[in-house]
């Protein structure tokens, strides 16, 4: 009964929504406002003035870099939130009755075999983000996924050694800290937070800064994804 009512209400709500989207500018037309206003400027000038051939990277890290600065803070918030929700006073509760892993030898062998290649691919994606599809988030996710796969195969204790205790909090905070660092460097250099050097001859510095941010995001993202997974695993 309740479900039918909800469905009926949502079908009713669909009518104005569909009417509104049918009035949007036609899909895929090059004369839309979305295409002629801000993005036209990016496409025209992005490659020269923002430091990367991949315009999406320019938008993410340079033109709208402040958004990404907030975004890496969001993912750090997720880590802090998961830890604040899951960590417990007594460590004894979780570890006792956990089923031990029994992974087939074949799977285990293949994963170990592939691990270095996956890691290399992740690094490739991170450092090539400015000239090809990819970037810090994508590469960081691959690294994080690698950590998760290794945890499943090797068991938690082995895998946790990938992220030593001492540098762990620094690595988790790497993305926002790199952003703030580069932002402040830009502030002293150009007078604007997250400003990149504008001179023609300094385009390599722009690229270096983009690369530094990509690496920061990649390392930080991977550390955060792995930590979130381990925290959940411990509570399972």
């Amino acid at each position: 009964m309740k479900k039918a009512l909800v469905a009926a209400l949502l079908i009713l709500a669909a009518i104005p929504l569909l009417l509104a989207v049918s009035e949007l500018p036609p899909h895929g037309s090059a004369s839309n406002a979305t295409y002629t206003h801000v993005s036209a400027y990016y496409l025209e000038h992005g490659a020269e003035e923002a430091g990367a051939e991949n315009i999406i990277t320019d938008v993410i890290l340079n033109y709208r870099g402040f958004d990404t600065n907030g975004e890496v803070t969001v993912i750090f918030t997720a880590l802090a939130a998961v830890l604040a929700v899951l960590l417990l006073g007594d460590a004894s509760t979780a570890t006792e009755d956990k089923p031990s892993h029994s992974v087939s030898v074949v799977v285990s062998f293949i994963v170990r075999l592939l691990a270095p290649f996956i890691a290399m691919f992740a690094v490739y994606v991170i450092i090539n983000g400015h000239i090809s599809p990819g970037g810090g988030f994508q590469g960081g996710t691959i690294l994080g996924a690698l950590a998760i796969v290794l945890t499943l195969v090797l068991g938690e204790d082995e895998a946790r050694r990938l992220l030593p205790e001492r540098p762990k909090p620094w690595l988790q905070a790497a993305a926002p800290l790199t952003f703030i660092g580069i932002g402040l460097a830009g502030l002293t250099d150009t007078g604007f937070y997250l400003g990149f050097p504008t001179a023609e001859a300094l385009s390599w510095i722009r690229t270096m800064w983009l690369l530094a941010i990509e690496i920061g995001i990649g390392v930080g993202g991977a550390a955060i994804i792995a930590s979130i997974f381990w925290t959940m695993e411990a509570e399972r």
Partner: peptide, 11 residues
Amino acid sequence: LVGGWARPYGI
């Protein structure tokens, strides 16, 4: 203007 980009190109 964050990054020094003029409105509306930057944030």
